[in-house]
């Protein structure tokens, strides 16, 4: 991990004492049950096999949350040794799938939870970089940043939109982050049990940042690599969805 590139947490978001007393998690690292990787997946039968193959080399427990896929995503995931598969009977959205996976991981004693995309955009090698600050007790939450790392094949329109999202997040949540809608994150057990995602769909990314602020969790950003391909861009969010996400976020805040 390149320490210089890690963004410092906000001054008014002190590292929590629980996060600082994380040697238990460090000691548990030998135990694959300590680090859980949560992968929300929707119609990813063609790509999730490679993602799980790449993660298999790491000492982590993987849980795939099949979010009501119409293809055989769950069957492909179940073919991998040791991978947990949870299935939503209907499609709820990525935010809901993440929360389901996090609930399951917490129930099973996870010390660190990493969220990872199922479409192959993320690099399994980044998992180590993400969990390190948590294991060292430096932060409750680690956010992957493609703008500190690499965003291979990113279209200029997406780059522009994500930059706009960064400004909105800085204004809205007060968090000084360089990347806001990156699915590659890590949470300490303490952070994961404090954060509750209620935004089922894509607005969850902003909601997580908002809850980091609200719960005064400490955070750092680390550089990660995101690889865009024609297939992932075709399936991913359209730029116009940004407006819908904004609406969901604002209305969601008004309804308790």
């Amino acid at each position: 991990m390149t320490e210089q590139r890690i963004q410092e947490p906000l001054r008014d978001a002190p590292a929590r004492s629980e996060a600082k007393s994380q040697p238990a998690a460090s000691e548990n690292l030998a135990d694959p049950a300590a680090v859980w990787v949560v992968i929300p997946a929707y119609n990813e039968a063609s790509r999730i096999g490679a993602v799980l193959q790449n993660l298999a080399a790491r000492r982590v427990t993987v849980v795939v949350v099949d979010d009501g896929s119409r293809d055989n995503t769950a069957a492909v995931a179940l073919a991998h040794e040791g991978v947990w598969v949870l299935r939503h009977i209907v499609n709820l959205g990525q935010g809901a799938a993440l929360q389901t996976g996090m609930d399951f991981a917490l129930q099973n004693g996870a010390e660190v939870i990493v969220t990872f995309d199922a479409d192959g955009q993320h690099d399994a090698a980044d998992v180590d970089r993400l969990i390190e600050p948590i294991l060292l007790g430096k932060a409750d939450v680690v956010l992957g940043s493609r703008f500190l790392g690499k965003a291979e094949g990113i279209p200029w329109s997406r780059r522009l939109l994500l930059r706009a999202a960064v400004w909105f997040t800085r204004w809205h949540s007060g968090l000084r982050v360089s990347d806001t809608h990156n699915g590659l994150r890590a949470f300490s057990r303490h952070a994961a049990s404090r954060i509750r995602i209620t935004q089922n769909r894509m607005a969850h990314a902003s909601e997580i940042l908002e809850q980091i602020r609200a719960n005064r969790l400490s955070y750092v950003e680390v550089p990660v690599t995101i690889r865009y391909s024609a297939a992932t861009l075709a399936k991913g969010q359209s730029s116009w969805n940004a407006i819908r996400i904004l609406g969901q976020l604002l209305v969601g805040k008004m309804i308790r």
Binding site: V83, W84, L86, A96, F104, T198, N200
Partner: peptide
Amino acid sequence: RQLTEAIRRLAVLEARRGG
């Protein structure tokens, strides 16, 4: 939100492990 919680509980109850 209530429906999401119900579906989530069902998913956790029916968790399966590969291999």
